[in-house]
Design a protein around this nucleic acid. Structure first.
Lengths: 185, 185
DNA sequence: GTCTATATTCAGATAGAC
DNA sequence: GTCTATCTGAATATAGAC
């Protein structure tokens, strides 16, 4: 019940198209065409178009959680934040389609895949918030986590979409500069 | 050739729906229903559904440019950045629908309204970049502008969508803390 | 300037051959 | 497990009465 390579083919094609045009504007016909399979095969492997997006989201959140967690391990304060940010930027670089979909969907509520999107938010923002909380008890940790995640996400996508010739280090330097502002004077 | 109140009605309804569901998932029937007019009236006032989105974008960019420019006027360095960020957060608060649409569309290329979206990017990121450039010649100004804009946008939307009970000052405090990182040690 | 009714295209999903 | 063919509902846009 499922050939893995076909599923990956479909997932990659769908991620690319949804990132570019959005979920509703992407048809299952388009996905099948790009994946090089027939529409029937798409529905053999996934129950519905929404299921495909859920799978894309879950694949992405797995990778993001994994890399951010291990970047954080054994560190705290600014050092932890810098390594977590670097890990997040790597995910944006390697899974740009996922990052674009995330940016497009995080602030929409009431959609079918709200839970999956919430899991990504949780994986990213909350992890930042947990590190920031003891550093800056004067700030709302969730808002601060959101601001940090936002700077990473937008800088990372700005880089990949409009300035991809710049090196990774340039993006990291920018984010590190902002993170430095969280260290108490 | 056009009754202004009807146009505003349609624009507001469309902005709310597109912010929540996305452009393609929002039908002209939905827009007409929410605006309290018939579909024919929508097409009398706007040439197409895409034209409606363009109008929403242009209304938003006008407001954003205006407030950010006047916030910047006569200031420079950190002081300018803080006032510009505050102005941007105000726009996100007062035009949350517009901000959500912006977040969803900025990193998509090749769509019909790419130009209008580009204008918003320009209005926000470039203005930040111009102030940052002389402060931090060691950083890529555009990436830094993007990171600052991203932190403002995501923190602002995080606030409006998930923590709207917090006061404006809490969001501003978070952004100001990050901006402080741009001041050379 | 606003309405109802309709033409036409296209989407998601299923059935069943191979 | 993958294909083609097809059902069915819905979407954009237009025509034309009021």
């Amino acid at each position: 019940m499922a050939k893995e390579s076909t599923q990956v083919e479909i997932l990659d094609a769908a991620a690319a198209l949804i990132a570019e045009r959005g979920y509703t504007a992407t048809s299952v016909d388009d996905i099948a065409l790009r994946a090089g399979v027939a529409k029937g095969s798409v529905y053999y492997n996934f129950g519905s178009k929404a299921d495909i997006l859920e799978a894309i989201l879950q694949r992405g959140v797995g990778r993001l959680s994994e890399l951010m967690s291990s970047a954080r391990e054994g560190r705290e304060g600014l050092d932890a934040l810098e390594h977590m940010a670097a890990a997040a930027i790597e995910v944006i670089r390697d899974r740009t389609d996922f990052a674009k979909i995330l940016a497009a969907e995080v602030f929409r509520v009431g959609r079918q895949w709200e839970e999956s999107i919430g899991a990504v938010r949780e994986a990213a923002i909350s992890q930042f918030a947990e590190v920031i909380a003891p550093m800056r008890p004067d700030l709302d940790a969730h808002l601060a986590g959101g601001a940090v995640f936002g700077s990473v996400l937008v800088a990372g996508l700005e880089w990949m979409v409009f300035e991809s010739d710049r090196p990774f280090e340039d993006v990291l330097a920018v984010v590190k500069a902002l993170l430095g502002g969280l260290v108490k004077a």
